[in-house]
Amino acid sequence: MVPEGGPSSYGQKLGIQKDHVVQELGWDEDSDDDIRADVEDASGGELLDEDADEVVDVVLLWWRDGDGDLVDRLMDAIAPLADDGIIWVLTPKTGKPGHVLPAEIAESAPTAGLMQTSSANLGDWSASRLVQPKSKAAGRHS
């Protein structure tokens, strides 16, 4: 399904650029294949799965109510992340099965050492952009 106004630009909305290495976590049958395909098109490569051990620029984390402890999952997602990398937490929109309250992300991010910077509307999914604070990322080079 193509959103109104022309071809899908989910990759653009998420800031995905050519040659970005993108890892996907939390995929399930309800994950949106249009978002996944558009991210692959934007990056020019396939999404890495949970078992990849490369440094990644972007993590797409599909997250639903009942998936467990978001802080633990975010800590796992940080491990392969480049210092200036981004984690996008994708959650079902309000009224959809598995909807997650925005407060859960807002409370979990700082506990995991991340800052929420923006959000994006992706069809039936909402995406929250999480980054590592600059001071913390700079300290990892030692």
Rank of each mutant, 00 (worst) to 15 (best):
V2K: 11
P3R: 03
G6F: 02
G6A: 13
S8I: 12
S9C: 08
S9L: 11
Y10L: 02
K13L: 15
I16K: 13
Q17D: 12
V21H: 13
V21A: 15
V21M: 14
Q23R: 12
E24L: 13
E24D: 08
D28L: 00
D30M: 06
S31V: 04
D33E: 09
I35M: 05
I35Q: 07
A37S: 13
D38Y: 07
V39C: 07
E40G: 06
D41I: 00
A42E: 08
A42R: 04
G45E: 07
L48P: 00
D49Y: 01
D51Q: 09
D51A: 15
A52Y: 04
E54H: 01
E54C: 01
E54Q: 14
E54N: 08
V55C: 04
V55P: 00
V56E: 03
D57R: 06
V58Y: 00
L60D: 06
D65N: 12
G66K: 08
G66M: 00
G68L: 06
G68I: 01
D69Y: 01
V71P: 05
D72F: 00
M75C: 06
I78K: 15
A79Q: 14
A79L: 09
P80Q: 04
L81V: 06
L81E: 05
A82I: 00
D83H: 12
D84F: 01
I87Q: 01
I87V: 14
W88A: 03
W88M: 06
V89W: 02
V89N: 01
T91I: 15
T91F: 00
K93Y: 07
T94S: 14
T94R: 12
K96F: 12
K96D: 13
K96V: 10
P97F: 05
P97R: 12
P97I: 09
L101E: 10
A103P: 03
E104N: 15
A106C: 05
A106Q: 13
E107Q: 10
E107D: 13
T111R: 14
A112N: 02
G113N: 03
L114N: 06
Q116H: 08
D124P: 15
S126P: 00
A127T: 03
S128L: 02
P133H: 08
K134T: 10
S135R: 11
K136P: 06
K136Q: 11
A137V: 11
A137R: 09
A137S: 09
R140H: 10
